[in-house]
Design a protein around this nucleic acid. Structure first.
Lengths: 397, 397
DNA sequence: GACTACTTAATTCATTTTGTTTTATTTTTT
DNA sequence: AAAAAATAAAACAAAATGAATTAAGTAGTC
């Protein structure tokens, strides 16, 4: 059966036994990925597949070099189960995060372990040079992988949204001049010969979190991505929700301030959330008040000293965020909100704590569930690692 | 294989051949439901199943009395295809819409055709009496179905949200006193012996629209449900999105007005959208300005006379709605917005038109897709008909 | 106009393929 | 002996495959 992607008529596609097998394969792989060294019998229980079926599939996956045995468990009685786990170095992928102020690339293993990381600071680069530089770095990572005899299964690219999904990944960024209609996917694909997946940075970070982080145990969450701007990634039923045109979760341009004083935004409106809550907004705020030296360490130092200007910003930001959060909660009703991105960890914790305190009062009455507010467990460059998850996610998940 | 619903560990369940067969059956049935009288060969093309497989499944469905042959098509050449269609009277279901001001019940066929409708006006009834009355009406419909020798496959109940999904359908309505912790599902199930499904009225209406209305050709949409309050139903990838606690889409309590003048709302906040845009808000508005006689006909008459007070309300409502619409669009990025509920059709058309005009200016720049704004095609009592879709939807969809 | 051969597409029949399940057996521990 | 896990071979169910059949329309011929 040829499972060609169907056009408009939203009819679903039928299955056959081979499809079922592929699905089972993925289910087994997923189960091992999530529940980590695990016996075949246990997988069978979890997936409600037969022991035999699981055995066959595990056999096959092992032959493909994706799994490895991890010793026996000492149980009470009976034959001690042989545990299997994902062979982390079976394959790896490259994640690229292109943002307005920096470029990060990671070479990541199946479990999210980063083998090598490349960073570079820049400021609003032109697409042509940026892509050349990115390509050069990708080549370095390819060589690195080759030296270690590991296979690269693809490249994921995270770009600051919004992104056109339909026609070959074109970016349309109001605050990223020159990047309209750049075919990132096609360029990198033909240059590297690898499968390339492009996504919004916030969505990529959310996918990363749902694969490698606390998202593993959440069925749905909304990810606040603190980048130069403020992005939002949505995971529903364990799958990213990208929306009809691929631009769902655009939380940065929700209006939170109205009237004369509202700050204008590159998107054409004013009072947008990301003009108040984002790395750029923070740097602006501190800059206007005489602070300089804008990096994570400085921020952490300021925070530890409880710098008045920083704390003021954090408190204000918390209020704005809760505002947005309550609305998102009403519309999407996710299990949790995850806070991540480039804001240093202690600051994120402070923000979460502040939101947590003011949330109950702001939620509408009769709401049955107060969403959990969680700090992202992938801290370093969540978007880059999330991008690295895309090839694995798209092909096997 | 026993496909028991799995608990917390979000691992997926494996498939087998019987599952695949059931899926294919549903896919074929869905295809026929959506694409109307259709030949087996065409179904095969649509579903990318084999002709033979489709043939077998159609045979089976026909034997179950769900399908019927509908004559041959006269094509250009070759054997004229034998068309099959859903036998509309193969089964029917009961839809119940309980709202604060009225009760509607429908007996609907598979295609959404209403065989019998029962209505009753009331005002904030106590649950006990309301359920007794509803039960009495259900019994009437059951008898009606029995006289026509049709089988009833279940009862769907639409209630004004929010609803607790997890523990046996308990309602928690801020504007519907006395209805907290009423186990509607359990009561009706044990009284009628039929499977009962309870849902939020807006979600039910959205499901109805996606089954019987324009939603058939939409992969995702947001449904604005004009009831006593303002509800929101979300369909993503053709499936309702209910959220983690079953209360997604609660658009009525988004704040659209702030400051002193904001009207307070039963939810505890003030300035909520539904205090400005809803049937209750409209009646309040007209009542404050000396109008009386609150029913659809009066409204239509006022509209045709371009009554100044009504038009003012419509214009204001349009502005508030666009406000909410833009936010939802940024977050969810749906293919379309559908407007339906108890607001008379010409008024809905006027509202849509007004929103359509102001939308482009309000959307953020760089947005690739302007969502379509559509009038619901199920007009009468969308929630009741949608509720009737629930049993079919839950069991076969 | 009547007949025939040809084309096209839908449908059916018989056979093969595929992967899961079943059943029985073996292994390894308490 | 009992229990749990793993393995092996045969049974099974449903879809895929390919050839055959059916029902039209088309084109040419007499």
């Amino acid at each position: 059966m040829n499972a060609k992607p169907l056009q408009k008529p939203a009819t679903r596609s039928g299955t056959n036994i081979e499809h079922a097998h592929l699905l089972n394969q993925r289910v087994v792989f997923e189960t091992i990925r999530l529940l980590g060294p695990i016996s075949r019998a246990e997988i069978a229980r979890q997936t409600s597949l037969t022991n035999q079926t699981v055995s066959n599939i595990v056999e096959q996956l092992k032959a493909d070099g994706l799994l490895e045995a991890k010793g026996r468990l000492t149980t009470l009685r009976g034959q001690p189960p042989l545990l299997f786990d994902i062979k982390p170095d079976a394959a790896c992928s490259i994640g690229v995060h292109v943002d307005r102020d920096h470029l990060t690339l990671v070479l990541a293993q199946l479990r999210g372990q980063v083998l090598k990381q490349l960073c570079r600071e820049w400021y609003l680069p032109r697409p042509k040079e940026a892509l050349e530089i990115a390509l050069d770095h990708i080549r370095q990572l390819q060589e690195h992988a080759q030296r270690n005899a590991t296979q690269i299964c693809g490249v994921g690219v995270a770009l600051p949204g919004p992104i056109d999904f339909k026609k070959g990944q074109v970016i349309h960024a109001p605050n990223f001049p020159g990047w309209e209609a750049v075919d990132v996917q096609h360029f990198l694909m033909s240059a590297t010969g690898l499968p390339v997946f492009v996504d919004n940075d916030a969505t990529a970070a959310a996918v990363g979190e749902s694969w490698y982080g606390i998202g593993r145990s959440l069925e749905s969450f909304f990810y606040f991505f603190f980048g130069v701007g403020l992005g939002g990634g949505i995971i529903l039923r364990g799958q990213p929700h990208r929306g009809f045109s691929g631009n769902a979760g655009e939380v940065g341009h929700i209006a939170v301030v109205s009237g004369r004083n509202a700050r204008s935004c590159g998107c054409g409106n004013s009072g947008c959330l990301e003009r108040y809550v984002s790395m750029a907004a923070l740097y602006d705020w501190l800059g206007e008040r005489g602070n300089k030296g804008f990096d994570s360490l400085t921020l952490i130092r300021l925070f530890e000293a409880r710098d008045r200007r920083l704390m003021e910003w954090l408190d204000d930001s918390g209020d704005y965020l809760v505002d947005a959060l309550v609305r998102i909660e009403m519309l999407l009703d996710p299990e949790a909100f995850v806070f991540g991105g480039r804001l240093p960890s202690p600051l994120v914790e402070y923000l979460i704590d502040r939101c947590q305190r003011s949330l109950p009062a702001r939620q509408m009455q009769g709401r049955l569930h107060t969403p959990r507010l969680l700090k992202a467990s992938v801290t370093d460059d969540a978007a880059a690692l999330g991008a690295a998850a895309l090839p694995t996610h798209m092909t096997s998940g």
